[in-house]
Each structure stands twice: as C-alpha cells, then as structure tokens.
C-alpha cells in the first residue's frame, strides 16, 4: 500500500509497467519497515475484521436458536416451505466461487495476470448467479405468496402462529448474507479493475486479492451454516 500524503504529479505513465501501481513498482507505506510487514499487518487486520463478521452473524444464529427452542413447531414448518434444491444450488455456486477466489490468489502469486482476471470474473459471476437464484426463485416467489416477515406476513395457510417470526429470521439472515455477497463481489470488482488497468497484483504485492478472497471465504462459510439451519433441519 502507499500513503496518501505524498503524490508525485508526474507519475501518470503511458505504459502499465511503469505505473507506480504496477505490482513491481509498489512500495510499503512510510511507517512500515518492509512490504512483508505491511502485508502481514493487512492480513492480521482482515482476520480481525472477519472475527467481527462472525460475531455479527452469531447474533442472528443466536436468535435462531432461541426461537427454535421457543417455537419448535413454527421452525419445523418453516424449513418445509423452503426448497432445499435452490439452497443446494446456491451452495454449489458459492463453493465454486470460493475455489476460484482461492485460485485468483494463487494466480497473483505466480504473476499469471490473465488467469487472475478470469478467476475473478468467474467469482463475480457466481456472486451474481447466487443473488439471481435468491431473488428470482426464492424471495420473489415467497413474497408473492405472502410469506413475508413480521406484520407483512399474509400467507393464508400458515400452520403456526409464530411462522411470521420464522420468516423474519429467514429474511434477516439470508438478507444480510446476500448483502455480504454483494459487498464481496464489489470488492472483487475493485480488484479486477486494478488488475486490468495496472496489473497491480503480483508475487510481491497481492494484499487486496488475498483479503478479498478471505472475505469471500467467510461469506461462503456463513452460507454453509445458514443452508442446513434454514433448509435442511426440521
């Protein structure tokens, strides 16, 4: 990473190779002794951030557990309303994207610029597919049937008075997760832009690719928990 304080007004070179953003030309921030230390720090920072994300979702899982104990009927009914096939499809999509995200890091380390971009594009495409499945086959359909959260619930064939609560937790859990998918995809979008425009990532400088991939693995991991809890357990 570089700092914001000192900019060199002459550094807008024509060739990517001479760009200061090219991975060969990038140097550590002024307060770091070396680029390695900076990389380690950025990674440590990312892991800490991921901890906070885990705790954020922990709140939702905790709410899920509490209400599951209070209203087991509603919770059992709830999972019957969901089609596990869509959940499984999305799980597959996310697992694939996690693999390509990991590949992207590997490609950056090996300076395979083309494959780096391909892997990122596949990852972003998977994210889009995930959101598409979620919206088109799940949210839209469910909302159309009146299976909405809280007081918006108007599904006429509900078996249990507390099903609206189940839907509240479903929408909050999957909704916040979907938001994370979008943020992760946006992060990869940034990586893609820099990779294409400057070849900014290579064997000595791939912090952002690594961190974006870490974030993406977390998004994947959360889904791995959401999927069985919401779709599979009765």
């Amino acid at each position: 990473m570089s700092t914001m304080t000192d900019t060199n007004p002459t550094d807008v070179p024509q060739s990517i190779l001479k760009s200061p953003k090219h991975w060969r030309n990038r140097i550590a921030g002024h307060h770091w002794r070396s680029g390695d230390e900076e990389f380690d720090a950025a990674k440590l920072g990312m892991w800490l951030f991921l901890t906070t994300e885990v705790l954020l979702f922990a709140g939702i899982f905790c709410g899920y557990a509490v209400f599951r104990m209070m209203y087991p009927e509603a919770w059992a009914n709830g999972s019957h309303y969901l089609d596990w096939r869509f959940g499984a499809a999305n799980t597959a999509v996310l697992l694939l994207s996690s693999w390509t995200a990991a590949n992207a890091v590997r490609c950056a380390q090996l300076d395979k610029q083309f494959w780096l971009r391909v892997n990122i594009i596949v990852t972003i495409a998977c994210a889009a597919l995930f959101i598409f499945i979620k919206l088109k086959f799940e949210y839209m359909v469910k909302l159309g049937q009146g299976k909405a959260p809280g007081t918006f619930f108007s599904y006429p064939h509900a078996h249990d008075a507390h099903e609206p609560l189940w839907w509240s937790l479903y929408y909050i859990g999957t909704g916040i997760h979907a938001l994370h998918v979008v943020i992760g995809a946006a992060l990869f979008g940034v990586v893609l832009y820099y990779a294409k425009r400057y070849q900014a990532y290579g064997p000595t400088q791939y912090t952002l690719v690594e961190n974006a991939a870490l974030y993406w693995h977390l998004v994947d991991l959360v889904w791995i928990f959401l999927f069985p809890l919401l779709y599979l357990i009765h």
């Binding site: 906070t52 994300e53 705790l55 954020l56 979702f57 922990a58 709140g59 939702i60 709410g63 209400f67 959260p149 809280g150 007081t151 918006f152 609206p164 609560l165 509240s168 937790l169 929408y171 909050i172 916040i176």
Partner: peptide, 20 residues
C-alpha cells in the same frame, strides 16, 4: 458487532415490524 446486529434488528423492528 453484536450491538451492530442488535441495533439493526431494532431498526427493522421499528420500520418493518419484524417481531423479533
């Protein structure tokens, strides 16, 4: 982060009546 999700739920509760 835990207060984050809690306050978020509170906001949803207020504007969308999710009922948690």
């Amino acid at each position: 982060p835990v207060i984050g999700i809690t306050l978020l739920l509170l906001i949803f509760e207020r504007i969308m009546n999710i009922g948690i």
